[in-house]
Every structure is written in C-alpha cells, then in structure tokens.
C-alpha cells in the first residue's frame, strides 16, 4: 500500500531526469507553483500571528501605563 502510494506520488511529482520532456516540465510547474504558494501561505499566517501578538502586547502595555497614571493621580 505504502509502495503504491510512493509510485503514484513519484509519477505525479518526479520528473524524468534522464529523458526530460514537456510533461516533466509541467510536473515541475505544478510542483513549483504549489510550493511557492504553500511557502507564501505559511509566511502570511506567521506575519498575521506576529502582527496580532505585537498588537495585543502593545495594547497591554498601554493599558498598564494608563492604570499606572490613574494610580499615581489617586
């Protein structure tokens, strides 16, 4: 079962290195574009997480500052 999956996967993804033809370049196109989009998606998610984290951190800091000022005024 595992071997069959490997054969199918390699026939979809792996270009023929010895005898390279149009079909092989199309395989590389599919693999390349999918990988670039995958990397991009990962980067987008990481940037969004980072932005949210720093935004929350900033809000917390501002809140803490406000409380400090309020306490001082009392």
């Amino acid at each position: 079962m595992f071997e069959l999956r490997n054969v199918i996967q390699s026939s979809i993804w792996e270009p023929n290195k010895e005898d390279f033809h149009l079909i092989d370049s199309l395989k590389i196109m599919l693999r390349g574009m999918l990988t670039i989009f995958l990397v991009t998606a990962i980067l987008i998610v990481l940037v969004v997480i980072l932005n949210n984290y720093t935004k929350k951190k900033k809000e917390k800091e501002e809140k803490a500052k406000e409380t400090e000022i309020e306490n001082e005024s009392y």
Binding site: H21, M29, G32, M33, I36, T40, I44, V47, V48, N51
Partner: peptide, 29 residues
Amino acid sequence: LTNPKLMLFGAAAQFGIFFTLSMATLLND
C-alpha cells in the same frame, strides 16, 4: 507586513518562470 495578503501576488507572478521552462522544453522536443 501591513497587508500580508499581497504576498500572494508575488507567488502568482512567478508563473512566467515555469511557463518558460515548459516552452524551452517544448523547443527541445
């Protein structure tokens, strides 16, 4: 960083690389 979705266009615009690879291979064929 303010609009990370824009990164998708950077990815899409690499299509020319792979299209040209296919064209060069077609010429070889």
